[in-house]
Design a protein around this nucleic acid. Structure first.
Lengths: 251, 251
DNA sequence: TATTGACATTAACGCTGCGTAATAGTTTAC
DNA sequence: GTAAACTATTACGCAGCGTTAATGTCAATA
């Protein structure tokens, strides 16, 4: 049985271009060239193509396949074992990458939840203010200021103590941070204090803290203009400063 | 602070070629070009490069990075989530590949152990024959023929029963296979019987049998000339026939 | 028999993200 | 003043083909 390029291509499920390419690189040369210049393949070539595709499917590159098939002693086993090592390495790298991306996404989400909460706090504050303007002390008389706060806190899914503590912590963090930035040294005690506070603060939003995530998050502050902007409001250069400080803090 | 290519390159830990390339594709254009034609980068460019490298580290391609950074609303989160999906897909493909390679390696090892055992059997047989020729019935008198066999079997790490059973099974398999090939139909009862025997036979070498591995192994018989040769001795076209029969058998 | 459509051929660019020359001009250091 | 160190542009190379483009050949039909 003899085949032209397309016949063989269809038989093996590859493109004719692929066969020409394999001819070009000397991986699979036709049995003969007919008088009209057509490539003619025979049974031996079909078999060899099968072997080629077999290894190709396993991700072996064409040069390697050529080597494997050309070697008399045909040690496909150790070739595949080498290949497997490469694949496992690639897998490890990929897994590392995925882990990083997931961590980053988590950090971003943490930030978004936080900013959402802040927005929501602002919204509630306005509502309370409006209520107060509209109804004067009525509301306070009915529920008491603490009751309103309690309700706000509840909506946010926190106990009032937590809420108050977070509020206090946020202010403390921002102040400490501001002062530290003014001093200018990311390694200074006040900067490191700010890092400690930032870590505490983070734990309000994160289920599990890790140094890497902390470093990643502060890098995010620098990379993402939206977050940078937020921190620029506290002090100019604050995002970069915090990142550098946290890098020292986590070392 | 202003930087020429190499300054910025060293600062960011990339090559100057990379920066020129980023300029070429419009990913990072210098702040200005000085009178001598040198690229001059400013602080803004440094920051942008940081962002670029941040995403690059996560495996995002340059076009995508350009898109992310150019978008006003800068939704890095969903971009990363998209990216993550791609990565997970790649991981899955890679894992599939690894599984296949491992399976193939296992099959090859099974075969090699088998061929080694065959060689060893041949070797032992010769030894026994030689001994018999040299020492006539001396050996048999000393240990008895069964004792020699027992010792042979022991060297092979099998009980004598196992050894005999395997031997019998191998012969039965080969005969059945030969007849089936002569009949020519991989779906025929005798062919399927051969498959059943081949499965049994395999279980002498494999700890855990699977249909996929069985199919993979018989494909190996076709792909690997060394194995093909072995089966060709039983009957012409035997390897291909067995593969096709097992494909039906495992269906 | 002339034409058409399905095939075949070679040659060439394109993709990704740069590495690596080659060639030539500029700035800096001694 | 000259050499060393830097800058620039241009362009090939990498892997494995996909994809035109321009052209030739074969089998079948009008």
């Amino acid at each position: 049985m003899e085949y032209t390029v397309n016949k063989l291509a269809k038989l093996a499920g590859v493109s004719s271009r692929t066969l020409r390419y394999y001819d070009e690189i000397g991986l699979l040369t036709p049995k003969r060239i007919s008088s009209n210049g057509y490539r003619i393949y025979g049974q031996k070539e079909v078999d060899r193509l099968q072997q080629i595709l077999f290894y190709r499917e396993l991700g072996v590159n064409l040069d390697e396949i050529k080597r494997i098939l050309s070697e008399k002693n045909f040690d496909g086993l150790s070739a595949l074992q080498d290949h497997l090592r490469g694949l496992l390495e690639r897998k490890q790298q990929l897994e590392l990458l995925i882990e990083n991306v997931e961590k980053t996404i988590k950090a971003m989400k943490g930030e978004i939840i936080m900013t959402d909460k802040e927005k929501f706090q602002g919204f509630l504050k306005n509502m309370v203010d409006d209520n107060e303007r509209q109804f004067g002390k009525e509301i306070r008389e009915k529920y008491g200021k603490d009751a309103v706060n309690r309700s706000n806190a509840k909506v946010l899914g926190m106990t009032q103590e937590q809420y108050a503590a977070l509020d206090k912590l946020t202010k403390e963090l921002n102040e400490t941070l501001k002062k530290a930035v003014e001093q200018g040294d990311p390694g200074s005690p006040s900067a490191q204090k700010a890092c400690e506070l930032h870590k505490e603060w983070l734990c309000y939003f994160w289920d599990n803290y890790s140094k890497e995530a902390h470093i990643g998050l502060t890098q995010m502050y620098v990379n993402d203009p939206r977050f940078t902007e937020y921190y620029e409001k506290i002090a100019p250069g604050c995002a970069v400063f915090l990142r550098d400080a946290v890098a020292i803090f986590c070392k």
